[in-house]
Design a protein around this nucleic acid. Structure first.
Length: 758
RNA sequence: GCCCCCGUAGCCCAAUGGCAGAGGCAGGCGCCUUAAAAGCGCUCCAGUGCGGGUUCGAGUCCCGCCGGGGGUACCA
């Protein structure tokens, strides 16, 4: 199955439509029609009966259906949170869509906004998303696996409970280094957390004012600046104290922006001696540095005091100044302190993740409506499955300009509905779903195009999936691939699919670039493939793309030659006109060398194609074409060779079949000129005669001290002893050895002998 | 800063630890042609980024550099 579809909802389509004053729907489908025509020109062999567009109501109703299932399971929920906001797109973004502090789509600087939004609970699946990657090891690019692992960012440590002076409730912090608890000299809460605000409100007026100023300053810092690690540490003392649970020491509480509100508990114990960030902060505020781990350098000498050097010692070592932990190494100390704290109810082992829940609401028009209505009496109510799809209202009459709230809010007739539960007045959710929801399960839908009773036929999915070979750009290393893996696992838990990973093997294909950089309209370095097509033909362009290099590499169009490809195709094509033997001629009498070359090539090319080494496969076919040409042009007196040699027909037919994968038009024409029918694409792969793969004699290289001194033609099945004797008897070997004796002789029959002199 | 990948001929790229070159592009010479193009034939071109190590033998494995690309970076 080789289906094709359009992930046709989303911002690019909507923004382009707004720019042109067009209806996003009309604009999108016109573009799809153009792209489809273009794909057909390129002779893409998709299964044109399995097409889908994610912006079709027949498709997106099932997004809503999946949303409902998530909602039933508590995997879709709303919460107020500080979210990523793109001021240009005027919508929220998922964490994954913020790249270096910039909007993934438009490169605007992302800001923060407190909003109540819909989330999918990806964090519930963090462990499985991480651990199931074992199935993908060796089948996905290691790079992608590493990126996903880092993104999920699991860390092991402990929760530790600190009492707060003047506050009834203690505060829990997460740390990966509970062993350094005795070295905690201050306490930091995230400046933009509720906890910080509360702690500040209990302080004196001057502190409150200072805190308010600081929070305001933090808000103004853009996401880009906040991410700069070399930024000096800032913060404000809250004039409050926490109590270290192991020694009852009072430590001052600061609010700072280097602690994040939504990781761990939004508060930390600061151990400046053994954490560089804490040390940087301590330096700015003149806070004490207490060494509790004796960390040694490579030379075994103790590393210098961090309090002096301001270089934190973060490594392993023996605990000191730490009461019951003294003398233990890091790992032992961690286990021991967790035990001690656990006994007092003041701490326990804990795991944390960098991964956040998936924010799926978007304040935009061109997407899947969220199937929820809000009722004054019933609250948040799911639109029943039988009432799906909740179709998008027509764009006509709506204000499509991004303004921070969904354009759907303007469709008053659409917004006002009856509550599905009580029949009372209710309003629809006016946000639409992130388009990554659309693409997170589309591969399942391909098995069941046209079904209007289920999102997909479970039996068909069982038959076809998981996807054997997925191909996509590395740009989706985290986004699409993580979301698809998540949704697949949810569907697995629902009993709808029997596998936990959607894509068995993954290939990251490269891009076509020009003169070293990505092509772009603004740079004006666009290679117009349509022009190339007119100039050299579809087959030549296709062949150029596969021959240029390994598929995962970028292709610099400046480095390759479509005219060279065209020339090769013409050379191959001419062979078919030079074959004079009839269809079905008995090949056994043909030129044996050419026959061997043909079968060897067919055999090798098959393996190369299966391992995606198309560039090498093409080179092998070129080689064979050259060999056939030689035989055709050199008829021999004994009647072999020339266009009438049956081996020439056999080879040329094989060339046509092999080329049909890359250059279908040329191959079909060759096939027809060879008198064959109906067409090469139905011909099937040539059967390899194993007997022709074995060669009778091979060239054995004879080395003396690793240097090639001679070559011998030997039978392929020659024995080691016989070959050794043969090699040692060679005059060239004797000459190279001279007076020296022989230390040892390495024999790798039948191809190599290496004589090692004494 | 940390992690990963890659450095082979003028260029793109091949080479289960075993003859560094399969294929192509570009260049040169020749044949064909009235001429040119196309085609055909021949040919030039590197010792594999640098320095060590392992091995009978290293482009390939290991260590350290240099260069290029990518990922990631206050996640406690």
């Amino acid at each position: 199955m080789h289906p094709i579809g359009w992930d046709s909802f989303g911002l690019p389509a909507e923004n382009a439509a707004i720019k042109r004053g067009a209806d996003p729907r009309a604009w999108t489908y016109e573009n799809i029609a153009q792209q489809l025509a273009s794909m057909r020109r390129y002779a893409c062999s998709f299964d044109w009966d399995r097409i889908l567009h994610t912006s079709d109501p027949e498709y997106y109703r099932w997004n809503q259906w999946i949303f409902n299932r998530m909602h039933e399971r508590g995997l879709a929920y709303r919460k107020p949170s500080l979210v990523n906001w793109c001021p240009s797109c005027q919508t929220v973004l998922a964490n994954e869509q913020v790249v270096d502090g910039l909007c993934e789509r438009c490169d605007s600087v992302v800001t923060k906004k407190k909003l109540t939004q819909w989330y999918f609970k990806t964090t519930d699946y963090a462990d499985r998303l991480l651990d199931d990657m074992a199935q993908l090891e060796g089948k996905w690019p290691g790079k992608v696996l590493t990126m996903q692992r880092n993104w999920i960012g699991r860390s092991n440590g402990a929760d530790v409970v600190f009492a707060i002076e003047g506050r009834a409730e203690p505060v829990t912090v997460y740390t990966t280094r509970p062993d350094t608890l005795y070295g905690a000299t201050f306490f930091v809460v995230a400046a933009d957390s509720d906890l910080a605000a509360e702690l500040a409100s209990g302080a004196d007026e001057a502190t409150q004012a200072a805190f308010a100023d600081y929070v305001e300053a933090v808000r103004r810092v853009s996401e880009i600046d906040r991410l700069a690690t070399d930024r000096p540490k800032t913060g404000v003392f809250l004039n409050r104290y926490a109590v270290n649970p192991v020694n009852d020491e009072q430590i001052p509480i600061y609010a700072a922006d280097y602690v994040l509100p939504d990781y761990g508990h939004g508060a930390i114990m600061a151990v400046p001696a053994h954490d560089q960030r804490d040390l940087d902060f301590a330096k700015v505020f003149g806070l004490p540095v207490q060494v509790v781990v004796d960390v040694r350098g490579e030379d075994g000498e103790p590393l210098p005091d961090p309090g002096v050097t301001f270089e934190a010692t973060a490594g392993d070592g023996v605990l000191v100044n730490s009461g019951p932990l003294d003398g233990l190494r890091k790992a032992e100390a961690i286990a021991r302190i967790i035990e001690i704290l656990g006994g007092k109810g003041l701490g326990k082992a804990a795991t944390n993740y960098r991964l956040r829940d998936w924010l799926i609401s978007r304040q935009r028009y061109w997407g899947t409506p969220i199937p929820i209505v809000y009722c004054d009496t019933c609250g948040e109510v799911r639109v029943p499955d039988k009432a799906l799809p909740v179709e998008l209202p027509p764009a006509a009459g709506l204000d499509m300009q991004p303004k921070g709230t969904s354009p759907l809010g303007g469709a008053s007739d659409w917004v006002r509905v009856e509550c599905p539960q009580c029949g009372g007045p209710a309003t629809r959710d006016t946000d639409t779903m992130d388009t990554f929801v659309d693409s997170s399960w589309y591969f399942l839908r391909y098995t069941s195009i046209g079904r209007d009773d289920v999102p997909f036929d479970v039996a068909e999915v069982e038959k076809w999936l998981p996807v054997d070979q997925y191909v996509g750009g590395v740009t989706h290393a985290i986004l699409h691939l993580l979301y698809s893996r998540f949704v697949t696992k949810v569907l697995f838990d629902m009993g709808m699919v029997s596998f936990t990973e959607p894509f068995t093997r993954l290939l990251n294909q490269g891009m076509v670039i020009m003169n070293g950089s990505a092509m772009s309209k603004s740079r004006g370095n666009l290679v117009r493939l349509s022009d190339q097509l007119v100039e050299h033909g579809v087959d030549a362009v296709r062949l150029t793309l596969v021959f240029a290099g390994p598929p995962e590499d970028d292709i610099d169009w400046a480095d390759v030659s479509a005219s060279g490809s065209a020339r090769f195709l013409a050379r191959a094509w001419r062979l078919s006109g030079d074959v004079t033997s009839p269809v079905g001629v008995e090949v056994s009498g043909g030129d044996p060398a050419l026959r061997a070359a043909t079968h060897r090539t067919v055999h090798e090319v098959a393996g190369l194609i299966e391992s995606f080494r198309f560039n090498v496969a093409v080179a092998r076919v070129m080689e064979l074409v050259n060999a056939v040409r030689k035989v055709i042009d050199n008829p021999r007196p004994d009647g072999t060779g020339g266009g009438g040699d049956p081996a020439v027909r056999e080879a040329t037919e094989a060339v046509a079949i092999m080329l049909s994968l890359f250059a279908p038009y040329t191959a079909e024409d060759m096939w027809s000129r060879l008198g064959l029918e109906p067409c090469v694409s139905l011909a099937g792969w040539p059967v390899v005669d194993e007997a022709l793969l074995v060669t009778e004699t091979v060239t054995c290289v004879v080395q003396v001290a690793g240097k090639v001194r001679d070559r011998i033609e030997v039978p392929a099945g020659i024995g080691a002893d016989e070959l050794r004797e043969l090699a040692l008897a060679r005059p060239a070997v004797q000459k190279a050895l001279g007076e020296k004796g022989i230390r040892t002789v390495v024999v790798r029959q039948p191809r190599l002998v290496n004589v090692v002199p004494a």
